[in-house]
C-alpha cells in the first residue's frame, strides 16, 4: 500500500508533475474546440457545394475541388497530414504548433463533417425543396431556412460523434512535439519509468470527457425531437 502511495506521489505530486496533465488537457481541448469550428465551417460549405451540384448541376468547378479535397483527406491518415502540414507546408516559417494542430485537425475533420452533412441534406425529401421553390424562395434561402435546419437535426448524433472522434484523434499531436494530454502523460512516464498510473490517468480523463459529451448530446437530441411529437 505504501508502495502504491509512493508511486502516486512520484507520478502526480513530485515536482508538480500533475501540471503535465492539466496543461496537456488544456492544449487538447483548445485544439479540439477550434478544430471542430474549422471542421464544421469547412464541412458545411463543402457539403452545400456537393449537394447543390448533385441537385441542380451548378457549381461544377467548386464541386471538383471539393471532391479532390475529400478524396485526399479521407484517403490518408490524419497523422501523415499533420506531419506534412508541420514539416513541409510550414517548414520555413516559425509558427505556433498549437495553430498547426488546429489547422491540421480542422481540415481533416471538415472532410468527414462534409460527408455527414451531405448525407443529411440528401436525406431531406425532394418535396421540401419543391415546397420552398413553389413559395418563391430561391435555392439558397430554401437551403438555409428549410433544408439545413431539418438536416442538422437528423445528423446531430453523427456530428457529435465526429467531435468525439476528433478529440481522441488529437492524441497524435505529440508527433509534432505538441504537449497535449497524451504527450503529458507520456512525459511523466518517461521521467518516472512508471507507465501504469500516468497512462491510466490519461485514459480516464479522455473517457470522462467523452462520456460527458455523449450525455449532453443525448439531452440535446431529446429536446430537438420535441418538434416532431409536439
Amino acid at each position: 500500500m505504501d508502495e502504491f502511495a509512493q508511486k502516486l506521489y512520484d507520478t502526480f505530486i513530485l515536482d508538480d508533475r500533475w501540471k503535465y496533465l492539466t496543461n496537456g488537457l488544456c492544449t487538447t481541448l483548445i485544439i479540439t474546440v477550434f478544430a471542430v469550428m474549422i471542421g464544421m465551417l469547412l464541412g458545411f460549405l463543402v457539403a452545400i457545394v456537393r449537394a447543390t451540384h448533385d441537385k441542380t448541376g451548378k457549381l461544377k468547378i467548386l464541386n471538383f475541388i471539393s471532391k479532390i479535397y475529400l478524396t485526399v483527406i479521407r484517403g490518408t491518415p490524419v497523422m501523415v497530414q499533420l506531419l506534412i502540414i508541420y514539416y513541409i507546408i510550414f517548414a520555413s516559417v516559425r509558427i505556433d504548433k498549437t495553430f498547426v494542430g488546429i489547422l491540421a485537425f480542422g481540415i481533416n475533420s471538415g472532410a468527414y463533417v462534409a460527408e455527414i452533412v451531405r448525407s443529411g441534406i440528401m436525406s431531406i425529401d425532394q418535396g421540401q425543396f419543391e415546397a420552398g421553390a413553389s413559395l418563391g424562395l430561391n435555392y439558397p434561402k430554401t437551403m438555409l431556412f428549410i433544408i439545413l435546419p431539418q438536416a442538422f437535426k437528423n445528423i446531430l448524433p453523427a456530428l457529435a460523434n465526429e467531435c468525439i472522434v476528433l478529440l481522441k484523434e488529437t492524441s497524435v499531436a505529440g508527433y509534432i512535439a505538441l504537449e497535449d494530454l497524451t504527450k503529458g502523460g507520456d512525459i511523466i512516464r518517461s521521467v518516472t519509468y512508471e507507465a501504469f498510473l500516468p497512462l491510466i490517468a490519461v485514459a480516464l480523463i479522455y473517457l470522462i470527457i467523452v462520456v460527458g459529451l455523449s450525455s449532453l448530446v443525448g439531452k440535446l437530441e431529446r429536446r430537438l425531437k420535441k418538434s416532431d411529437r409536439g
Partner: peptide, 27 residues
C-alpha cells in the same frame, strides 16, 4: 413568378421543423 402561383402538393410538404404559424409566414 412563383410568388404569384400558389401550389398545393399531394403530400402536403409542410415544413416539419416549423410551427404552423411559421410555415405560413416564412416565405
Amino acid at each position: 413568378v412563383r410568388e404569384k402561383m400558389g401550389m398545393v402538393f399531394q403530400h402536403f410538404n409542410l415544413f416539419p421543423h416549423l410551427t404552423i404559424r411559421k410555415n405560413l409566414t416564412i416565405a
